[in-house]
């Protein structure tokens, strides 16, 4: 196997109840092209530039700077998260560069308690070649494969990837172009194209929208997305997620969380447009 398939793994959660159906191992890859204001894992967006700041602040000496690279010693780390708080580059020094087979080895130790894997991020489709090989290996041992994506990757051009992917959980952060740019710093043409394409080839497992009062017209987004999805026969789930401040960068933490009544109202809107499976989190 060539070295090019090594990817930066931010972390692997052995049992996850929130990354798709049943119990799954969730693999978080480092790196994302979006810059969402409400990102809960801002430290997963970029790769480390070895500025050395976290190395100085780490209380346990788990980090060292060697040859212009940060070396992370897992056994010394006390999981205090100081490093990711002080990093100015949206990165984390606690990543491991891993081959698909190495990731699979870790996943396998969770069998038979899991039914599959979900790759997430950051944005895991930053590494399509890794995903293809990793998912192939997962399929060989009988695991199902899901991708959690912000929709920036052109799935329609990668049949090979979709062949080994059971479904995509797609974030639609805002339906309106300008709002999407305001929320994420990027346009959403590819996101909306992916939504319809994946729905048409029956690979869209779930669509998600984070509800952030005051940031964008989430009601319009949910209504428009529901409208589009109801045209497809398959039973696509709409997950409506309440904004929560944990993990969010200080400067964006002041948004309010929507209350239950508001979330129920949104679910009603999705339902009235023909969405059957609605999940409020």
């Amino acid at each position: 196997m060539s070295n090019s398939l090594k990817v930066p793994v931010n972390r692997i959660i052995p049992f996850s109840s929130v990354d798709g159906p049943g119990n799954r191992t969730a693999v978080f890859l480092q790196g994302c092209g979006f810059d969402c204001k409400y990102c809960h894992n801002p430290e997963t967006r970029n790769l480390c530039v070895a500025c050395g700041r976290c190395v100085q602040e780490c209380p346990t000496g788990a980090l060292t700077l060697v040859d212009n690279k940060v070396i992370f010693d897992y056994n010394k780390c006390c999981k205090c998260d100081t490093c990711i708080k002080v990093c100015k580059h949206g990165a984390s020094p606690r990543i491991r560069w891993m081959e698909p087979a190495e990731v699979l080895e870790e996943v396998k130790s969770n069998m038979p308690f899991i039914r599959g894997v979900t790759t997430s991020g950051g944005e895991c489709t930053t590494y399509p070649e890794f995903l293809k090989e990793f998912f192939r290996l997962c399929k060989d041992v009988g695991l199902t494969t899901l991708i959690d994506s912000n929709g920036s990757y052109d799935f329609s051009k990668d049949r090979e990837l979709l062949e080994v992917t059971d479904g995509v959980m797609l974030d639609v952060k805002a339906y309106d172009l300008n709002e999407h740019i305001n929320v994420t710093g990027t346009d959403n043409k590819m996101v909306l194209q992916n939504m319809e394409y994946l729905a048409s080839v029956d690979k869209l497992f779930e669509v998600r929208t984070v509800v952030v009062p005051g940031l964008f017209d989430y009601e319009g987004t949910i209504a428009e997305v529901s409208n589009k999805l109801s045209a497809y026969k398959t039973n696509i789930r709409y997950k409506i997620i309440a904004f929560r401040p944990n993990g969010v960068r200080q400067e964006y933490r002041n948004y309010n969380s929507p209350d239950r009544a508001e979330l129920d109202r949104l679910a009603e809107i999705a339902k009235s447009k023909g969405i059957k499976d609605i999940n409020i989190i």
Binding site: F113, I114, R115
Partner: peptide, 22 residues
């Protein structure tokens, strides 16, 4: 079990299925 799992009972089901195999 955390209350959010109420929305994913299959999570617990998978654990039980794994357990009786182990």
């Amino acid at each position: 079990i955390d209350a959010t799992v109420h929305r994913n009972p299959e999570y617990v089901m998978d654990i039980i299925k794994g357990a009786i195999n182990q």
